[in-house]
Amino acid sequence: MLSISQGLFYFLSFISVLFALMVILAKNPVHSVIYLIVTFFCISGHYFMLNAQFLGIVNIIVYAGAIMVLFLFVIMFLNLNHETEPKTPILAKIAGAICGGMLLLLVVAIFNDTQLIYAQNPNNQIGLIKNLGLVLFKDYLFPFEIVSILFLAAMVGAVLLAKKDDKTKQSDII
């Protein structure tokens, strides 16, 4: 008999795989985005079940919130729909299916072959924000500081790309 958490696990997994498939199979790109949001919520549910609340909330805020809104915005902005979608050649579809299928086969075979090692005394508090902060500011302070350099470059770059330049001709801009 399944316990509640196991039942929840299977339910969330089923929903997330189902909606992930529907993201690909949906004809309308706006529907795809909405299905993707459902998938993200299911994945966040998994994080909550693993007692990783911080990760779950960040997943919702960043992915389901910010990035998906951006996706929707771009899709509506570009007015993508079924007619404007470029036709994929049948050969490319077959090649893609073969490559993807082989990768899937490889991954499944490898997981079949591998014996997973489980942690001896798992710390179930590890996903809490307090512990995450301690690790981030203690063990990984150096990578954390390096990320600030990355953000500086990205920020300056965003300003560079977004700010209109007087000397660049209008015709040169896409």
Partner: peptide, 29 residues
């Protein structure tokens, strides 16, 4: 450490994405 490795490599990538734009043509974008 892979974390440091990945962060460094991504910084290089982001800077190279940006630096291509300095040609300021549609082709460069």
């Amino acid at each position: 450490h892979w974390l440091l490795f990945f962060v460094g490599l991504e910084t290089i990538s982001i800077c190279s994405y940006l630096i291509i734009n300095f040609y300021f043509t549609a082709k460069a974008h």
